[in-house]
Design a protein around this nucleic acid. Structure first.
Lengths: 337, 337
DNA sequence: CATATATTTTGGATCGTTCCAATTCCAGTA
DNA sequence: TACTGGAATTGGAACGATCCAAAATATATG
């Protein structure tokens, strides 16, 4: 017979009752060491594998956390996802990662599937727009849900929101460019109307208005491809622009590639700052200045807050902005190596 | 009472039996449309959520596929993972993605956790080395297991292996560089001793020997950082080298950045070809020539093979190399725009 | 209309674990 | 020896779905 062995088989093999086997499985201290050893030997002998579905059915508490990411292909989010998974793993929780691919319908399906699978909590970097039923469903489930990096639902008492203080980063980046001598600073990338775009733009706008400088903004998707295309547009339509703050590093790297292609490599009179400080920023040429969001640290903090919520019923603050830090590299500095 | 409603509650609400509710849940065609509607209304009214753990316990067949990836941060693997997940989703299977982070111990833990969660099959791009117990465990589980992209276990009748025909790509890339006038072609990146490094190197070596050209190889991690560092080493120690085949695009992009930093931008007498043809290859400057592995297509093929195995007991071939295609771009062509 | 057949619906058994109250074991004490 | 109390072990009742064979209902046939 090919049937998977159960704890009853183990119990028979070890000459104890199924309850004792269950206690061993749970690492209870109240079984005698000798008995424990016998049970463990029996398990190894008959090749027993734990059936978590059965256990969950009875105990309801599952060491499973769901993670839904709007775009897992973006390295920034990949880093967040992998760090969160590893941090939770070190606390005995398994994480299921899913990619919503910026598709609200898929996101809804994934969330429903995770609830069905009985996750104990959910972390979501949501897709924008059309997501209200998803959050209504989450609200009904009563699960601990953390919104991270993107705020798609305003009910932050229900879905506490943690992200970075992008506005402050934007101010710092703009001041830095002005200090370096830039006078026509464009903002490139970010889809218009989104909260995160507004935030990353707000500091730039504020500083420019204070300084009485002109504003040029090119909006679009947050991809390398858009940056490439934006370079051409900037050169053709706004030749006076001498610096750019990009929505993220991917856009910035694309923009730099675009300027290089046009024969005006960044560093020679044109300055660029990105957002996120992904690993590649330090490795590109020229190295890219970026508003650094310590995403690994952020993922660890998120894990800690989530654990506090799940384990100690200690609900996180509704809004929590993490500090950012401007890392100045050659792409924005006056002198060029 | 805060108890989650069960199908019995739904049945009571709708005035039918639990069996009927179960049939509706499974989308059985044998319930009358009127009854179905009544049940669905009842579900909505009392906010029923399906309990998959309970269902799995009885039926054993779970629409769940595990995916373990050696390094999810590598965009090549991220693309594979997300495409596989989406393809399987369109066939009604949920996918749990986990990142082993090149850590054999973590990989073992993840695999064990997935088996416990009752996945119906597993796709693994394994970590190299120390993984034998992991595969022994998988063999014992009797699950359909596909090894993809990396072969860590030689028992390919048990764990069918699918990857790309890297050797052919390597031949094509080397011939191409020679055609373009290169005479000193280095191989950069890839950890020595690994099957995949041997494969990607084999064609290069073969062609060089045929042509009677010298061989220079720099081995290291498959990261942008190593490429950056390799550029300096190449310039300092092997100034005669006039072209490079890189283990992957990340190394190639790092190498190009390194050459640019050293004031010898690629395209002016130095040619580079990478492997994988990640999205960024076309967007860098200069655009990077690469041996294209259509990873999205590969992920879809993998999904199809896995489904055939799971559903029709149709076991895939033990070894299946997918064709690759050289995409020549400015980084390896004679003339520079 | 009675009967045969097809379509829907149903109650009980079952999956493999955990939980709980109850029982057994055993060393220490009177 | 008989008794006690804590430690170790146990059997039965859940958990919430699916499966199956049987029952109820609807439809077709002569």
């Amino acid at each position: 017979m090919k049937r998977r062995p159960t704890i009853l088989d183990v119990a028979a093999q070890a000459g104890v009752s199924k309850s004792t086997v269950s206690l061993v499985l749970q690492g209870s201290p109240q079984v005698k060491p000798g008995t424990r050893a016998a049970v463990q030997t029996a398990m190894a002998e008959i090749g027993y594998v734990y059936n978590r579905a059965a256990a969950n059915l009875r105990s309801a508490s599952v060491g499973l956390v769901g993670l839904v990411i709007n775009d897992l292909r973006n390295p920034f989010f990949t880093e967040f996802a992998t760090t969160l998974q590893m941090t939770l793993a070190s606390h005995g929780y398994a994480t299921v990662i899913a990619n919503a691919d910026e598709d609200p319908a898929l996101q809804a399906k994934l969330v429903a599937s995770m609830i069905e699978h009985g996750v104990a909590a959910l972390v979501i970097s949501p897709v924008y727009g059309e997501g209200s039923e998803t959050f209504d469903q989450l609200a009904r489930s009563g699960l601990p849900v953390c919104q991270v990096l993107r705020k798609a639902d305003e009910r932050t008492e229900l879905f506490p929101f943690a992200s970075f203080d992008y506005a402050a980063g934007s101010v710092a980046a703009t001041r830095h460019l002005i200090d370096q001598g830039a006078r026509n600073i464009a903002f490139v990338g970010g889809l218009p109307g989104r909260a995160i775009t507004r935030e990353r733009k707000s500091g730039w706008r504020e500083v420019l208005r204070e300084a009485g400088l002109a504003e040029v903004a090119l909006h679009g998707k947050s991809t390398r491809g858009f940056g490439l295309q934006a370079a051409d547009q900037l050169i053709a339509e706004h030749p006076q622009v001498d610096a750019a703050i990009c929505f993220n590093d991917l856009v910035a790297l694309g923009l730099m590639a675009g300027f290089a292609r046009a024969g005006r490599p960044v560093g020679q009179g044109f300055r660029v700052v990105g957002f996120d400080d992904i690993e590649e920023a330090a490795q590109s040429w020229p190295p890219l200045s970026s508003v650094s969001c310590d995403i690994a640290q952020f993922a660890q903090d998120t894990a800690a807050r989530l654990l506090a919520w799940m384990v100690d019923q200690d609900r996180p603050a509704p809004e929590l902005p993490s500090a950012v830090r401007l890392v100045a590299r050659a792409s924005s500095l006056g002198n060029e190596t």
